[in-house]
Design a protein around this nucleic acid. Structure first.
Lengths: 343, 343
DNA sequence: TTGTACGCGTTATCAC
DNA sequence: GTGATAACGCGTACAA
């Protein structure tokens, strides 16, 4: 077996409990023995056994991540690596590690969460998405297990700590940007209506249209599944309208790439014939042709703040429920153009 | 506190050890008491404590993932979500979960690995990349801790179990594909020379050029860091050569996207003026303009097999070292064209 | 300031 | 078949 606290104790001529205290850097312990113990640890190459420590202290120093189902193409979205990078940073700073339980179906994922929680494998959980009727949230609330949602919960907003952007305002900003460029026929291409973020961005879009005295038309709103396939039909439909839009608010950069692709195929030039904006400002926006104007939602910060706030919650009892808003800002590139014909 | 095995034992009128046996589905135990115990578990909503189980059985049922440093932009590569999806599948099938230790620097990552191993937090480790002089591999070998490398190790190949493609052959295939299209001036755009995969693909390229009696020119080989920035200069340099290449073998789809972008900017048409092929066949290849011809390396399978093989290794002692090769195949799209001028 | 003794929730090794 | 009992490695009252 490997080196335990007892071995160290023997070598340093102290009791195991003393070693334990040295590890925890307990205040009242003589500097002398501290040194002696530390030397013994080094000499033996001692490393604490996390499992044993967890059992004794009832804390694992690790946080659970819940991702969308792996069958879901959404995983391919660069949003996730980036948000995980942020979480990593926050976790690492407090010496926490990450635990992922995966599954292909909603049911499998739910079971995974139950195992993490009841099995005491993690101290808290971060939900990397927010969608309607998520059993997981009900379960976590019921267990009063610490968790943070990235995105806005669909209900129990007052009782859940979450980190989000002001997606309504972001959507207003970007839509008004197009309107100020002279666009009067602006369409919205959104993702799954099961995601709360879709609702928020649609709402912002609608608000911007109406408050600028433009007509809000249902046929200018399309909802497609996140990646490629669906988006393409939506574009065909939009452009075959009697009065096709001159600008598109697309809810996600990856979708926007698909849209650019389809437009090119149809012989429409961006931004000359039609303007396009996206959300998230992922790396790909720079590589796209033309470079995509996009709302930077600070994905990294979403993850970083979520981790910090969760750790806060697990380490200090009775933290109040928090709502952390991450600022957004429009990054203007080359996918939008002034609508001179004023259609 | 939560419900333990003892509570179940009491309710079912048996000893804790019996409950434990029921959980493990021990063979010699009467069907009757099995039923009684199971009912008691349900009634109390019992869930085993993983931590305690790990301590007693000295196995965690979770595997550690080592990713490239989070500072590294490489994380943005869709390769990782996909390989993790494969790992997830393999892990989930055997009821394993995933543990990620992260870090920004090489040093932090190394420390994370040491903690995972010495802290007995995981039963085995999967390295998601392979590069030169990786201290982590030396450490794991030294500790004789079970691990699997995705990609080819730079040394100790005989002693390490790894899952890889035949990247040399893949590169030969794709280069010969271009040669057969009539291209005589083919250039190679590779990634970091610290990655073993770069070497393999370059080697295959070189082999294909020479064995087809074409001149191998150093100025036709460029190495750039994975994403955008560097790649662009490389293209400029290649195209300003006296005899510029008519086809490019680009080592990664994401890099290839950047290349397409740059070529477009320079007014070069793909595939009419110049042909481009990539590697990995990620989703983006379909969205790109033109859709990118790419070598499908079966990323999902890389992950899936790595997980299966690692679990095999941890559960059955003395498994022989394995070398698992995942097949590749060329997916032809629209980024290559016959070179009719026969330059 | 340090040592003793017990508990954390399981699994595993004996007995019976 | 089943029940005590001892590990597993560590944290922590309590005692000294």
């Amino acid at each position: 077996m490997s080196i335990t606290i007892k071995d160290v104790a023997k070598l340093a001529n102290v009791a195991p409990s003393t070693v334990s205290r040295v590890i925890a850097d307990h205040p009242n312990i003589s500097g002398e023995t501290k040194e002696r113990v530390r030397e013994a640890m080094k000499e033996l190459g001692y490393h604490p056994n996390f499992i044993a420590r967890s059992l004794a202290s009832n804390s694992t120093q690790s946080i659970g991540l819940v991702m969308p189902s792996s069958a879901d193409k959404a995983l391919q979205n660069p949003f996730f690596p980036e948000v995980i990078r942020g979480i990593s940073k926050g976790a690492h700073e407090k010496k926490y590690s990450l635990h992922i339980s995966t599954g292909e179906s909603l049911e499998e994922i739910f079971d995974g969460v139950v195992q993490m929680v009841q099995g005491r494998r993690v101290d808290g959980i971060i939900l990397l998405y927010s969608r309607f009727n998520d059993k997981i949230i009900d379960y976590l609330l019921d267990q009063s297990f610490p968790f943070v949602v990235i995105g806005k919960p669909y209900k129990y907003k007052k009782e859940i700590t979450y980190v989000d952007n002001d997606n309504v305002q972001a959507s207003i900003d970007v839509t008004e940007y197009l309107i100020k460029l002279g666009h009067k026929r602006v369409a919205f291409v959104g993702g799954s209506l099961n995601l709360v973020v879709t609702i928020d961005r649609l709402q912002g879009f609608k608000h911007a249209i109406l408050s600028n005295n433009l007509p809000y038309r249902d046929e200018y709103v399309k909802h497609v599944e996140f990646l490629k396939e669906g988006g393409r039909e939506a574009i065909t439909e939009l452009l075959s309208l009697e009065k096709p839009p001159t600008a598109l608010v697309v809810m996600d950069d990856l979708m926007a790439l698909g849209v650019l692709n389809k437009l090119d195929e149809m012989g429409k030039a961006v931004p000359d014939d039609i303007s396009v904006v996206g959300f998230n400002n992922v790396l790909l926006t720079e590589i796209s042709r033309p470079p995509l104007t996009s709302v930077d939602i600070n994905i990294f910060q979403l993850g970083y703040q979520a981790a910090k706030s969760l750790i806060d919650q697990t380490e200090n009892q009775n933290q109040p429920v928090k709502r952390i808003m991450i600022p957004h800002n429009l990054v203007i590139r080359e996918s939008c153009y002034e609508n001179k014909q004023n259609l």
